[in-house]
Design a protein around this nucleic acid. Sequence first.
DNA 1: CATGAATGAGTTTTCATTCAT
DNA 2: TATGAATGAAAACTCATTCAT
Lengths: 215, 215, 215, 215
Amino acid sequence: MGAEADREGDTHDAIMGATYHALCKHGYAHLTMQDIADEFDKSRSLLHYHYDTKEELMLSYVDHSTGWIRRRLEESDTEDPLERLAEFLDGLVIEPGQEERETFALALTELRVQAAHDQRFREKLDAQYEENVNAVADIIADGADEGVLRAVDPHEVGEIMYTSMFGASMYQVTLGASRATLRMREGISQWVGEDLLVVDRTFPAYTGGDFSKND
Amino acid sequence: MGAEADREGDTHDAIMGATYHALCKHGYAHLTMQDIADEFDKSRSLLHYHYDTKEELMLSYVDHSTGWIRRRLEESDTEDPLERLAEFLDGLVIEPGQEERETFALALTELRVQAAHDQRFREKLDAQYEENVNAVADIIADGADEGVLRAVDPHEVGEIMYTSMFGASMYQVTLGASRATLRMREGISQWVGEDLLVVDRTFPAYTGGDFSKND
Amino acid sequence: MGAEADREGDTHDAIMGATYHALCKHGYAHLTMQDIADEFDKSRSLLHYHYDTKEELMLSYVDHSTGWIRRRLEESDTEDPLERLAEFLDGLVIEPGQEERETFALALTELRVQAAHDQRFREKLDAQYEENVNAVADIIADGADEGVLRAVDPHEVGEIMYTSMFGASMYQVTLGASRATLRMREGISQWVGEDLLVVDRTFPAYTGGDFSKND
Amino acid sequence: MGAEADREGDTHDAIMGATYHALCKHGYAHLTMQDIADEFDKSRSLLHYHYDTKEELMLSYVDHSTGWIRRRLEESDTEDPLERLAEFLDGLVIEPGQEERETFALALTELRVQAAHDQRFREKLDAQYEENVNAVADIIADGADEGVLRAVDPHEVGEIMYTSMFGASMYQVTLGASRATLRMREGISQWVGEDLLVVDRTFPAYTGGDFSKND
DNA sequence: CATGAATGAGTTTTCATTCAT
DNA sequence: TATGAATGAAAACTCATTCAT
């Protein structure tokens, strides 16, 4: 019964996973329904059983790719704002050679580019952007409440942090600047340490990420 | 012969222009030969007369989009390294509302993203990247030679400047961060002023761009 | 057992009803199993549980749509041949605005058209045609027996009557000739009055139809 | 040049012809683009080159099938209203065994039935109906002008004649009433002779039709 | 140089049908 | 009985590419 209940979810997840892998392998521009079907053990028709059109499937994937940042933070085992802020930033770092993560960042970038031409993508990605900015903003607000960070505008500062990291990941994956996110992480660390920290605390430096999959 | 050469050149330019417009309008993923043909008053077949395949046409467009930075610098009427450096940076700024330039930056981003999946794109764009970095590097080296800039590694510093500006333009056009390039320009100004300037000079601030079309 | 039999019958009727409604709504050419399933609250699979193929379901519907004329006559409370003949004809009249009946006539026309391309449809519809002709023929024969009608060939006269009425209903529903069946009914009345009536009787004119549903 | 000029027309005609043959062979409900392509020596893609969608092709066919009655009348070599009226009626007669014409009438009936479900078909077929009615109406008006026919309402009488003949052809092809149009032609002859003729003329009886193809 | 016509390979989509539960 | 999931065959449609002129 439980098994039955989540089979639906499983299939949906399987399709999203297959979409992720196909997207990484072929790129958005050349992605076909067949490519996605090839990434799991079901038929092409099944995709159309769950999603009327390719566009709907892709939009669903955009939804699915949303929220992984917040989910990651929810799994965190610390409540300390500085540590949580570090975790947020670390989650956006792509170390040289982490192909899986590079490839995911590229996929997100491709979707972002599509958004420039498609209203419906834009809406979903704008919401995703806002959610991620709010995720940091909440941490920063917590930090201010607890007195470890200056009373800055949390949303504004959060936006800078998220935009910087995501922008860095974009040019890392498209310009081959393999240390861009790492450097940006360090730059932000320094900035936090110099300008935002109030009390006598140290902002945690990047400590590598043993994160699980992004699909 | 000269006339013929011109005519060929004209046609080539017309096709490149049409490609640019079509690329901006439809995005790389949904770009068809017909879309390109629709942007000038010639037929689809003509495109194939000039380029065997769509891929070749696109590669040719990548070539065509290369070098505009250096060309712009060559048109400059000053030889002063600081002013030339400012011009280089200003050329990469996209002010809010400059649709034409936003759209061009988006097109370049699209090509960059494709490069991640296509070896031949990658080669050309990497060369373009290198050329642009060298363009700044040369200015910086001049500045060092003339004693107005510290003796830093010109290529390294140039890479940071170009990457920062191009990265900023990427997230400006894809994340809707409409002031990203402007802020990056200011950030670099400050950095140059504080860390790179040797003599008692001021680094020119951004002074708006009345640049002509990019197609 | 009786209960089960009923249930089966109910389901069968429900499917036939759904088929009728779907046929009217979408037309034979674009009719899908899903369209039929949508017309009642059961799944597409259930249709296949009861009928192996779509064609069988449609053939079954043809059977189902057969016999309503005779059934109607059986419910009649009169035994007078002239009144029964009038009832037969009235049952085929479609007054302007009687959408339900127009729609039913259209559905029958669609099936007739398919019959031209499908042997199995043809067989069933030919039988239906014959049955309906015989239904009138019997009335006419009764009339001759009772001496109220001339001793014509009942089958031949019946065929003319049925064909005329059904033909009229075909062009009423397809050509928008909204009074065609009504006029044909009147024309037949006149004909009967002038050429078929023997004794000093009047043939009943059309008196509107308060007939129940046809599905 | 002349050859080039009508090649377009030829292709269009060829497609219409292929559509006609495919329509007759498979029926509207089961008609595929491939069926149509199979009826001429060009590829399926060519159909999409000339018509964006199947629906457009079918609508174009409806247009094409319009006007053959008037065209036939234009080719007539007589100006006498009675003879032209007879020609009009004869053109709608389908003799038993004339498969080609039966099949064409069936195709028109199928399109008529679709019109009940599709606004765009309805518009075109209504226009076709009107045109055909007007074609007879004009003849009848001529007859009245020349004093050979009574001064009836030409449009009203024309509508009766056309509707009767077309209705008769519908049930001839769908009900297997193989003499329906012939009988209707005779019935109309009689009616004209008795009720419409003014002067001492005879209305020409049906004289068989050696008409060319309808595609 | 330029085009309209034509094509074939591929892509999305539809839909009757089957199957495990 | 009843269903949701799944499938394969076929359908419509797209599009880069070729070709005769």
